[in-house]
Amino acid sequence: AAGSSDDRALLSVASLFPGPACPATAEHGPSAAASARMRIVHQHGPCSPLADAHGKRPAHDEILAADQNRVESIQRRVSATTGRGKLTKRAAPVQPAPKKSPGHSASSSTPSLPATSGRALSTGNYVVTVGLGTPASKYTVVFDTGSDTTWVQCRPCVVKCYRQKEPLFDPAKSSTYANVSCSDPACDDLDSNGCTGGHCLYAVQYGDGSYTVGFFAQDTLTIAHDAIKGFRFGCGEKNSGLFGKTAGLMGLGRGKTSLTVQAYDKYGGAFAYCLPASSSGTGYLDFGPGSAGNNARLTPMLADKGPTFYYVGMTGIRVGGQQVPIAESVFSTAGTLVDSGTVITRLPATAYTALSKAFATGMSASGYKTAPAYSILDTCYDFTGLSDVSLPTVSLVFQGGACLDVDVSGIVYAISQAQVCLAFASNGDDES
């Protein structure tokens, strides 16, 4: 769909609007060093196990609004855990009050979990399919580097569940399922925990008001052909929110409850994913060292910046092969993290302004007609009647010189052919 040189990238306008069918593409074979590979698809794309011919995809304004919600949630959490930024953590208690259920001990007490607000969620997420329990059943879950705790909706769904496509996980049908005890140190690994009848409770509340509450449990998790015994996850008995038709979420953050950390002995704390160029494509999620191949450009993970998130050091931006004049301090003041769930890259205001100006200059030089802003996107073009367009390349530069030369599929976000926008947005200031 595209070609590129150092300063311009050729984009087929038709590639911005993939068809409704899942193309018969070759699977991405496992890299030599990766231990386990799963297929990644867009939750709402035609290759998704959750796809429904009559299902309604979220509208662009809904996706971008949810994305903004996720970003604000991340900003709140970063601010709360690092003391940086203008926003402050907001308390948002959840009262799970799980009731007695088959297979679970009863308790006369009503647990109250002080849920941590600010976990981020977005409708623009990608999903993978995992196995859970013995025998294993398949569950399609969002994978998320911006949170730690994995969870699925569980039977008997004591309080409430949203509608998911696959059957609910049923602990009673798994011979290896067990609730985590309140006295188990693993219960303390949770950001928000409680106790009922000796069983550990978890709760996660997301920034958009979505939440999941239930028993913290352990069972065998199967990813690709690997079994991870005793994997701890949330067995959700009270779940509500914008989770689509997924069965739950896989947390890949840096916290103790994340899959990354729980499977550290098996995979060395390493994983890699590749997101496809279009929502009708497929990518992969690999676990194990070396999973990204030998051509990866590396930058330090700034692990001391705060919990959960993957902080890196962005140092500059190039547009059309030319360095955009942005002081490095603009990036170092705010900090940078890489996130699988945020759709549109957010930049400090000064950096975004310089980027959009340089991009607009390049587009203007080619005579492309501008279009109105859309939601958080303010640098937009009308490609009506055009089959191919030539875009200025955009590169993000990180500490150590690692460079992410954004693929042509990731430079713009298409609302329609008449409104295709630079897929970056401003944080509104330089401190957030």
Partner: peptide
Amino acid sequence: VAIVGNTQQKTYGVLYDLGRKTVGFAPGSC
């Protein structure tokens, strides 16, 4: 905080390695 979003990550192998404390970007991975 600046956030590198998933639109910009498309087609890259994005590597996270807690042991080596590195994040990596491998072009043309899918």
